[in-house]
Write a protein that binds this DNA or RNA. Structure first.
Length: 420
DNA sequence: TCTGGGGTCCTAGGACCC
DNA sequence: TCTGGGGTCCTAGGACCC
């Protein structure tokens, strides 16, 4: 097998720079929802020591001292540019798997050599079509392709693409590659292995398989196999194979009133329904969770999650919204300042193949047509164009003090060019 | 590094049932 | 009533990812 990985460099920052070329060379960061923490950094921002995931209030001073620039996250813009990147990639290779907003794997099995030239061609084409710089890694497994892409980013002389396939080359790379930077080895395991003096990917690969299994479970074994060049994470249509779907948000302020939480949770349930229908599944369970501000230990705390099990699987937003509200009301306690809530769907079945209990009334079948219309309108006119009454008429708002324009999707926010 | 966000999957333990 | 095996569901927490 041969896998490619296309990884957008500092993606959110690169998106902002496409429309603000004056930001080249300056430290730039993009913040998470509610302007909470730093989720993307330009190379200059990394160089001055701003960490990934660092709370913005901690990074702010440093950024200002270096004449840096900050953006709230503009997912409408990033989502649109991501689609353009993926479309370009899809036009150049047969099979791609969109892994996240800024990464996609592709299958290169059966492609003739030289693959590194193909990789570089992909890179320049995407740059030309979208303005987004990417790095390409090519290797016999996805985990190795991830490592290759990192090397491509690290060593400019590779021209943005690293093709890694000879066994000797791979073990040479692995013996220098820090284990904690391997995809699938997180901070926690990285630290534990550090303590055991297992520092490189090569040392990890030489461990006993049973030992890895006992210590890290099946996911650890997969990583171990992948590093040995045995594909254990096949190409997957992720969007169709999710086993659970979650929509959750933190609120800009604590919310005390149940009546204020209800439309928010209803909106989450409705968004879950959209995702569910997009992947063509029905769900059996809906979870609702609610939590207070854990950063304020001086405030009374309440964290709770409850489940409802549908008697017949459903994909109707109306049914989801209804049960979400019931769950919320049962959990809600007056006097607590809630900071975050969420909805998770689980127990999926393929639509059309559901086992119907003998006396189940397929009560939601009549919603089917309605949901189709709703999804269609929302796709065409934007989220919230048509929604359930329970969602209320003002959409859930987050803090976004440093938002850029939605240059590519809103006529009113197009790029303006000034003549000199 | 006491990771102020969001999302997915896995595992362990307890409750309950056959 | 006690005991053991086996299964499912639920909750909580851990771990990873971007």
């Amino acid at each position: 097998m041969m896998y490619g990985l296309c990884d957008c460099n500092n993606f959110f920052v690169s998106c902002e720079r496409v429309f603000r070329p004056d930001l080249e060379g300056r430290p730039v960061v993009v913040l998470s929802n509610n302007d909470g923490c730093v989720v993307a950094r330009s190379n200059e921002a990394k160089a001055i020591g701003i960490g990934m995931g660092q709370p913005y209030f901690q990074a702010r001073g440093l950024l200002e001292r270096h004449n840096g620039v900050v953006f709230s996250s503009n997912f409408t813009l990033y989502g649109d540019l991501s689609r353009r990147v993926m479309t370009t990639l899809r036009s150049m290779v047969e099979e791609i798997e969109v892994y996240s907003i800024d990464e996609a794997f592709f299958n290169l099995e059966g492609y003739g050599e030289p693959l590194d030239e193909l990789g570089r061609k992909i890179r320049t084409t995407i740059r030309r079509h979208t303005g987004i710089p990417v790095s390409i890694g090519i290797a016999p497994t996805k985990t190795l392709a991830k490592i290759a892409a990192k090397l491509a980013k690290q060593y400019p002389k590779l021209g943005g693409c690293c093709y890694m396939h000879h066994e000797e080359d791979i073990s040479k790379v692995l013996s220098r590659f820090p284990l904690k930077d391997v995809w699938g080895i997180g901070r926690r395991y990285g630290k534990a292995f550090d303590k055991m003096q297992i520092l490189t990917a090569q040392q990890f690969v030489e461990l006993d398989k049973q030992w890895v299994q006992g210590r890290m479970g099946i996911t650890g074994v997969r990583t171990w196999m992948e590093l040995r060049g045995i594909p254990s994470l096949p190409m997957d249509d992720l969007s169709a194979s999710r086993q659970q779907i979650t929509v959750s948000r933190s609120f800009p302020h604590e919310i005390y009133a149940c009546g204020e939480l209800e439309p928010i949770v209803a909106e989450f349930a409705s968004r879950c329904g959209e995702k569910l229908r997009r992947q063509g599944s029905l769900c059996r369970t809906i979870h609702c969770f609610l939590m207070t501000n854990r950063h304020r230990p001086d405030h009374p705390q309440h964290v709770e999650e409850t489940v409802y099990r549908f008697s017949a699987p459903t994909d109707s937003s109306l049914a989801l919204v209804k049960e979400a509200r019931t769950l919320l009301r049962a959990m809600y306690r007056a006097g607590y300042g809630y900071k975050k809530a969420g909805i998770t769907l689980g127990g999926f079945e393929q639509r059309g193949s559901q086992q119907q209990a003998l006396f189940d009334v397929p009560s939601d079948a009549r919603h089917e047509k309605l949901m189709e219309v709703m999804d269609h309108l929302n796709r065409q006119y934007g989220h919230g164009a048509l929604k359930t009454a329970a969602e209320g008429n003002k959409p859930f708002q987050m803090n976004r003090e440093h938002m850029s324009r939605r240059y590519t999707t809103e006529w009113g926010e197009l790029l303006t060019v000034k003549a000199k």
